[in-house]
Design a protein around this nucleic acid. Structure first.
Length: 327
DNA sequence: AAGGGAGTCAACCGCGGAGGT
DNA sequence: GACCTCCGCGGTTGACTCCCT
């Protein structure tokens, strides 16, 4: 392979950085309808100005329906410690033992939390553990490490109970949390997208919900509205398989033209709808938008100073009602 | 109130492996 | 076997928030 690696995509024509809500919706909608047999061609087919790898990453780490959000439980942390002791930095392998958890998430938890915790433990101990970052050389060492693992786990449980979680806006805690999870310890810088994405993927999807869902009794999300939303998504198919490149180009032009005219107002409408769906407004969205912490945070978290860059984002466009939703 | 350091995490980058031609 | 494409993985980065001074 002496020619060097060809770039996976034209770096000058793809958008980088955080995903916008519209991009997420577009990706979710496309994958729901067409699957993801070819990541490389997916962005083009879906009308996304993203690298295929970026789409894949976003899907796997965030948008996938079965991805589990929220704090790692002590049991999960225990598992990670054990598996890391066995496999080393084989995050995907570790992730395969933790349903719903992604390798990226596990890697982050390890690097930012567990690793330091174990280091502290090691330093504080009179008889330092022989723990190392490298994988054990034989399977027998897994067994021999069991006791030490359990010791670490005890420490882990104790510390996790003692830690005071950083407060996250209440609504973000609710909608970003898997129902069985503990509250998220910290708010992510990009938790805007994580929140609503999890809302769609973990809460709102009809196949995931057997009836009205109550999360800690705080928000009751009507099943029907979610079905409506997903049915609505189902009706959206601006990317028919017969689409030609030219058609896609025309679609993009049309989207851009519309969003230039209406981007900000329509974004507000869309956000209001989202908040109504989440039960965060009492019918008059605008009042609550300014008076509650969580909705203020929602605006902040969603980067709600719409930055409409020509040819970049395709914000969802609401007309007078959600039924006129289009991307 | 302002500033800086620490912590967190989503996203990017580059590499290697698998599979096809 | 050489070359190519695509996917997946692991390391790293950068943006953001929180907390302390």
């Amino acid at each position: 392979m002496g020619r060097g690696r060809a770039p996976c995509c034209d770096k000058t024509k793809v958008k980088k950085g955080p995903w916008s809500p519209a991009e997420d919706l577009r990706l979710m909608s496309f994958i729901q309808r067409h699957g993801h047999s070819n990541w490389r061609s997916l962005p083009k087919q879906a009308g996304l100005l993203r690298c295929g790898k970026s789409c894949r990453l976003r899907w796997i780490n965030y948008l996938r329906p079965d991805v589990k959000r929220g704090n790692f439980t002590p049991e999960e942390e225990e598992t990670i410690i054990k598996l890391h002791n066995s496999f080393g930095n084989k995050w995907s392998r570790i992730a395969s033992h933790l349903p719903g958890r992604t390798d990226n998430e596990i890697k982050n938890v390890w690097n930012t939390n567990l690793k330091k915790r174990l280091t502290r433990k090691t330093e504080a101990s009179d008889s330092p553990m022989e723990y190392s970052d490298s994988p054990s050389s034989s399977s027998s060492s897994i067994t021999s490490n069991e006791d030490r693992n359990m010791e670490m786990i005890d420490q882990t449980v104790q510390e996790s109970g003692a830690r005071k979680p950083n407060e996250k806006p209440e609504f973000l805690k609710v909608i970003s949390r898997h129902p069985s999870d503990e509250p998220k310890e910290t708010a992510s810088s990009d938790s805007s997208t994580s929140s609503y994405a999890s809302y769609f993927c973990n809460v709102a999807r009809p196949e995931d919900i057997k009836g009205p869902t109550t999360l800690e009794g705080k928000i009751e999300i009507p099943f029907e509205s979610d079905i409506d939303f997903w049915n609505l998504l189902d009706t959206l198919d601006p990317f028919q398989s017969t689409n030609t490149e030219q058609n896609e180009c025309e679609n993009s032009k049309a989207f851009n033209a519309v969003e230039k005219l209406d981007g900000e107002d329509e974004c507000r409408e869309w956000l209001r709808y989202l908040e109504n769906e989440l039960g965060l407004t009492g019918g008059n969205g605008s009042d609550n938008l300014q008076n509650t912490d969580h909705t203020t945070s929602l605006h902040q978290k969603m980067n709600f100073e719409p930055e409409i860059e020509p040819g970049m984002d395709y914000f969802p466009i609401w007309s007078s009602s959600p039924q006129n939703f289009c991307i």
